[in-house]
Design a protein around this nucleic acid. Structure first.
Lengths: 198, 198, 198, 198
DNA sequence: AATGAATGAGGCTTCATTCAT
DNA sequence: GATGAATGAAGCCTCATTCAT
């Protein structure tokens, strides 16, 4: 028991695969259900349209970032390390699945209630804000920066840059360069100075 | 002179209005031509699909930014002034027309050739890069920052923040606060210090 | 005793309500069962389709007429009195529930076997025929009229006139006028003359 | 020119045929367009649904009655003659096309505006009312009957009786008997007496 | 170049019906 | 008998696109 109807799970997994394969516009509900191995009508028991699953997918994607950073981040390792971790992860995810920006973008835009977005991004924002607070205490960064606002800026910037690189189809070398510059841009923004290891 | 087929102009104007009204997905070619007062078939003389007009609209939107900054910006007035000008303008435009992010996003994403994006954004990037270079010379900002990369980051960040505020439907006060923080974030990122007026 | 499956009762009551609310075409089995508070599958234990309940509803409706006339009619009171009773009742019912004509119409049309109609209407026809026979004996009406045929005509006429008034959405005054004229039309048809009270 | 788009005509003709063949419920738009030899989408240029064509068909049917009576009726021939003509015609039409009652019934019920019904039936009502007025002048019938109300009753009665006979699937003999009785019922209702031929 | 009636492919969605529990 | 999640057939209807005028 507690199966809690795994149909929704199936739909989500399948939808993600199909969206990734065909893009948002060219995805058909019929493909999603075929991949999921369920009946066409079953889809509509859980979602009203293919676009209706996007918020759920967006949540998964962003949650993955958060989860990754929670697992691999190390507050002791310094802000630059953790920032680089975030950049690498987000760039990598976008590289691997070029439809991520569209899913997240559309998922949020279409999500009727605004709270949904907050719900999706809040954990990630909080995580980054925590890093910033720790760095403040640590003396790594300026104490007058606003962790809440800056965490949003940082995430936004990483995401939009990652998206841009995909659109531009930059070379691996160029991507590496962007990472460097982006990292420095953000660290500058928070007055970062290398933590002194005594 | 340059009648340049005012039909295309009509389509563009009409499409913008309809997209703004109904959103990208729910816009129909039939609505665009109705608003434009032209025949259904005429549309296809100029564009292949409704999405095909998005790059042109995106170009208009971004060009407006550039144009505005060229007209109102003042390289003598210091980077902070010009930055604030850009922030104000972009925020305002997004506030007034909440469909701008989608148009630009989709316009660029769907634009077959990547060069199109560069074509659209290059003048704006260059403009900001010029400000940065001037500020470097001016001693306002650090000389080791890369104007080319940073200009992209700056524009991206302003745009994505503006979009976020719309989705969140923030209050005017909150928006003002965001502008302040965003401005400081960016100025920090370039090591900005107030220019000394002697 | 005779619990006779109160589920069927529930379905009938619910179906009537939903038909009345949404009309025959726009009624869904899912709505009926929801209103009835029973499971979707339960419906099919008693009826094969939503249309399948119509004959039962029609029977209820027509039975109500018969029952009312049996209770309130008075064979001593003269044909005109009882006729007026029938007109009032049928008009009133149609006024109150504008979907009656459709239910009866469709209920009968779709009722596979023709005998069903007879089954539904026979008691009412017989009742009216009895009135006519009594009036014949009474000298109220001509003796050469055929009670069987005329009773059908009378009921048909009252029902179709009632329906027409609903479609036309006549005013209460106009409805009253119709009743008068209809009454006189029918009484004429049977050569009615006021019964002489000595 | 002045083709005035014969597509609508095609749809109407085809729809009638298909409705007659399959009944209202079991008719598919796809069948109508196939019979009409037009594209599926073309149908929706003229009607919103299959039910949407019913008012137009109802109008045709009722107009046919009127037209027939105008052509074959003879005001000089006495009310009984013309009444019988109407009965014969309406019975015959219903016999030949058993879907007529449903078309007319549904066509009128669904016709959004009430005026439509009046528009459809008015000419027929007026025609019968004219017969009644002529008969009044002629001394054939009572002068105190209301031509307007009675004409509606007469048409209603003929139509509903014709419909009933179809549902009952009466034998030709029985139908003939009904005609006789119906005719006498109506003539009684108007106090008809044979016109004296001197 | 402009028109707009006509096209028709095909995705969407419903909803009656089933059946394992 | 009762349940209701799941089914999937199939009709609806849109809407981009065409093409004769």
């Amino acid at each position: 028991m507690a199966k809690t109807s795994n149909k929704k799970e199936l739909i989500l997994t399948s939808a993600y695969r199909v969206f990734k394969e065909n893009g948002l516009e060219d995805t058909r509900v019929s493909q999603i259900v075929k991949e999921a191995g369920i009946a066409q009508g079953t889809f509509y028991l859980y979602y009203n349209s293919k676009m209706d699953v996007l918020p759920d997918l967006a949540q998964q994607i962003i949650s993955n970032y958060t989860q990754y950073l929670e697992e691999h981040g190390d507050i002791e390792a310094g802000l630059d390390y953790n920032l680089r971790l975030a950049i690498d992860r987000i760039f990598e995810a976008n590289q691997e699945d070029r439809t991520i920006p569209s899913i997240v973008y559309a998922g949020i835009t279409r999500s009727g209630d605004i709270d949904k977005w907050d719900l999706i991004y809040r954990p990630l924002y909080d995580l980054v804000a925590n890093y910033l607070e720790a760095a403040k205490k640590n003396g790594e960064i300026g104490t007058d920066i606003s962790a809440n606002y800056y965490s949003e800026f940082i995430i936004s910037l990483i995401e939009s840059t990652a998206r841009g690189l995909i659109l531009f189809q930059q070379s691996p070398e160029e991507i590496e360069k962007y990472k460097e510059e982006l990292s420095s841009f953000i660290l500058n923004a928070v007055y970062w100075t290398p933590v002194k290891v005594i």
